[in-house]
């Protein structure tokens, strides 16, 4: 077995910087931010997804993953993540391939919608300025987000996710060292 590559060089300040990037992304849906640029996580884990989990996941947050043994060993070592085998029991769902259906994940309850899962999903690329048209809280007029390699049927599944607000799943799209977030409030139209 090859030795594990390092996590954050400065666990405290790098996690803070990554959190602010994720907070910016969640506060301004569709805005593309950089995270984890210096990380070298094992394949198939991309740098941004690795950074998000190092920053937010720990033994208190059940994690479902399709990333395989090497990536899971890396996450277990660096953030003490507690893996679960049922996606609907997970607080964080990491999808490096086709993710589980949005409506198969934990949506929270009407009283406690904050228990809805966060889906961290890797896509081929993220770009701003064209593509999907996003509106909703966090967006002054409209944000454009170009996503290549989004899961099949994602926009239809997203519309259903949004319709059950305040219950629902929040999504972080990751590609290389870039990410964009889709809080459950955001409306997405094809570009």
């Amino acid at each position: 077995m090859t030795p594990l590559s390092p996590g954050f060089a400065d666990p405290v300040l790098d996690a803070q910087a990554c959190f602010r990037a994720v907070l910016e992304a969640m506060s301004r849906p569709g805005r593309v931010v950089v995270a984890g640029a210096a990380l070298r996580p094992p394949a198939p884990l991309c740098r941004a997804a690795a950074a998000v989990l190092l920053t937010l996941a720990d033994a208190d947050t059940p994690l479902w993953s399709d990333a395989g043994a090497n990536a899971e060993a890396w996450l277990r070592f660096h953030c003490g993540a507690a893996f679960v085998t049922a996606p609907d029991h997970a607080a964080f769902v990491l999808a490096t391939g086709t993710p589980p259906a949005l409506d198969a994940l934990q949506p929270g309850s009407e009283e406690q919608p904050q228990r809805g899962a966060t889906l961290v999903v890797q896509v081929a690329s993220l770009g701003a300025g064209h593509g999907w048209r996003l509106t909703g809280p966090g967006i002054e007029h409209e944000h454009r987000l170009a996503v290549t390699g989004a899961p099949g049927g994602f926009l239809a599944a997203w519309a259903m996710n949004r319709a059950r607000f305040p219950r629902g799943v929040d999504v972080v799209l990751c590609a290389e060292d870039r990410l964009a977030a889709l809080p459950r409030t955001v409306a997405i139209q094809e570009g």
């Binding site: 803070q16 937010l56 208190d60 904050q114 966060t118 966090g138 809080p183």
Partner: peptide, 25 residues
Amino acid sequence: FAYLDEATKRMIRRAILKAVAIPGH
């Protein structure tokens, strides 16, 4: 750094992100 231990920061950060995703809740 910033007084709180890292586990507490992670817990508060997760709460903040869900708070942003569910405005006013």
